[in-house]
Design a protein around this nucleic acid. Structure first.
Lengths: 139, 139
DNA sequence: TATTGTTATACTCTATAACTATA
DNA sequence: TATAGTTATAGAGTATAACAATA
């Protein structure tokens, strides 16, 4: 007996996640960013000096993809790669002033996307959703 | 001031959705299906006689992609396209006996994926998560 | 005129393997 | 031996436009 799609958490997560990415990409389009570049930029601004490997783990992105994303962001002057103080293999990704400024410009659009997605959930329900999502065993 | 990633519902949804798809694909690999084909097959088995357009809307998949997915499933004998009784433009997608049998074979693997993903959430929390996900405004 | 399915196409994303330089 | 970053590449997913048949 097959599961019903509507009652399958995995299905709904995949559906909602896809919608969230699409909505975000639509909002970011006029700011010259894609959702993956945006999340890397946010992570770099919020916790400066993460390694590329660390960024990949945090965001669920393959290390080889992180290279391309950071390349794009660096080309646009939004982040820069710095040397690790002791380990010469790793490169630390840091948001530039321009990068942080870009995030400020974008914040409104991103906020609208989230607000639209969350629709009629009240503050308590949003917190509950966030908590439950955080307790899932990803990968 | 940028949002923190950890507190962003959209980010967590995208992350969890991606993980759900990856886990499902891993489990389906030995059954010769991908997650998108699986969801179409489930939908066809659960509500027989949906139009391809209807399937696309239900699953959040572009109509042109539905064509390719149904092509694959039909080639493997898991679904068939039937004529709509009155509208000769639309083609109804119906799971075959083989398709339903395949779903039965797969059910165990899929169940494990969901169980692993949901980790330590109890029944009430799962129901809450499902409810909250269902109330999001997708697209 | 609008809609369903279809084809073609381009772009993005994902995943793997192999290489280099370091550790 | 193992790890960080990188490159190359192939395959899957996404999105758009255009067309034929039908409504």
């Amino acid at each position: 007996m097959p599961d019903t799609l509507a009652g399958d958490v995995g299905f709904r997560l995949a559906r909602a996640g896809g919608a969230a990415i699409r909505n975000l990409n639509r909002a970011l389009a006029r700011h010259g960013l894609r959702s993956r570049q945006y999340t890397v930029l946010v992570a770099a601004a919020e916790t400066p000096g993460r390694s590329q490997r660390g960024l990949g783990e945090l965001l669920g992105v393959d290390p080889s993809a992180v290279v391309a994303i950071v390349d794009d962001l660096e080309r646009d002057g939004l982040v820069r790669r710095e040397a690790h103080p002791v380990d010469r293999r790793t490169r630390l990704v840091v948001a530039t002033d321009a990068g942080r400024a870009r995030l400020v410009e974008i914040a409104g659009s991103v906020g609208e996307v989230d607000a639209a997605l969350l629709g009629d959930l009240d503050a308590g329900e949003r917190a509950t959703l966030l908590d439950l999502l955080g307790r899932l065993a990803l990968d």
